[in-house]
Design a binder for these strands. Structure first.
Lengths: 204, 204
DNA sequence: TATAACATACCAACTGGTTGGTATGTTTGC
DNA sequence: GCAAACATACCAACCAGTTGGTATGTTATA
């Protein structure tokens, strides 16, 4: 009775492979064979679990939502009592995540949506869902911070939450162009400064 | 008797085709045949002018620099005497460019660098050049605005200039995910608000 | 000025390898 | 024993790139 400790689970291995390979090479350049090779499974296993490459793209985006969902849910910044501190803590946490190689800290769905938004609507929708659901969590804290201060402003919590995601996605593009995380950290610093200015926090 | 009139010029037609097709489908999904079909030339012409698809990628990025270079050089915001007004005018101009379909207003090099940064260093470098040279122009106005006000701050003109590009690139990703320009305009509005706050401009 | 020699711009057909996907096994867990 | 989970073998379409060729300049030279 061999293999009692190892759990084959080709599907999970393929999804894990998708996260790293697609973030490195992009969705279109990633072949099904690439994914099978990386995951250590055969093509038969791939098409047993996914009815097409497009289907894997959607599943990978959903898997990414799950992956990042638990990552941010378990992050320490939620402990702050003041919702604004949670927002600023979130941004500091994003900056702290800029570690390892560029493919390691960049966003799967941001990469995928650029290649598929006109050609694969279901992948685009899955990417949109991933981004929007994540933004909604930050929006909640922004909204709470605004209400705690009874702010009268010409912008919404939703637009600021989405703006944080735009900055992060753009920071990743610059990091890819310049081959390092430093520029991305600078951009997040500007975003943090902006949020502090919006909420009248004394900048040190 | 030199041909001073019109030149059919398959090369120019291929580069024009590259701008639209790659922005729509992405670099990897764009085949050489796609470009030839769009340009109305044959494959022989393609490989006469470009030694490889990769070579076209580099040429397309350089062509994009040229294209955007003249676009922004001829833009009206340069008329302002105050350099800060030029910076804010630039950002308003970027917002005004959000017209037509998503492939029409998004950035070629931002799209390409995501797919090539790990696999095609020369394309990545060409994209980086395009972004950085553009940012340098905005940096000049930001720097002038800072010096005119003798500002003592903990950020540099260069980092703010690059941050504007990050916001724009990220705004394009969100526009692709959500299928419209509205969200991109919102993000640029946040960026404008940030610049005004940094320079203590009275927000209306 | 005539012409040989060369260069540029382009074309249609082809090639070897890769692609996503399928058809048909074999193995495993309940 | 039977379905789900894999593996093997294969295919037609497509891919980037090559080939051999034509048509139209441009330059050198006598």
């Amino acid at each position: 009775m061999p293999k009692l400790d190892t759990k084959p689970d080709a599907k999970a291995k393929l999804l894990d492979a998708a996260l790293s390979v697609i973030r490195t090479k992009g969705y279109s350049s990633t072949s099904v064979d690439d994914l099978c090779r990386e995951a250590g499974v055969t093509k038969g296993a791939f098409f047993h679990h996914f009815k097409s490459k497009n289907d894997l793209g959607v599943a990978a985006a959903d898997y990414w939502s799950l992956f990042t969902g638990t990552l941010f849910t378990n992050a320490p910044y939620h402990d702050h009592a003041d919702p604004l501190d949670r927002v600023l803590g979130y941004l500091e946490f994003r900056k702290a995540l800029l570690r390892g190689g560029v493919p390691d800290f960049t966003c799967l769905v941001g990469t995928m949506v650029q290649e598929t938004y006109e050609t694969a609507p279901n992948i685009r929708d899955a990417c949109d869902r991933s981004i929007s659901e994540h933004a909604a969590k930050i929006e909640a804290d922004i909204d709470a911070a605004m209400q705690a201060r009874a702010m009268a402003v010409d912008w919404t919590a939703e637009s600021l939450a989405l703006h944080t995601q735009a900055v992060l996605q753009g920071a990743f593009i610059l990091a890819k162009a310049k081959g390092g995380a430093a520029i991305a950290a600078d951009s997040i610093d500007h975003l943090i400064r902006y949020v502090k200015l919006l909420f009248d926090v004394q900048t040190t």
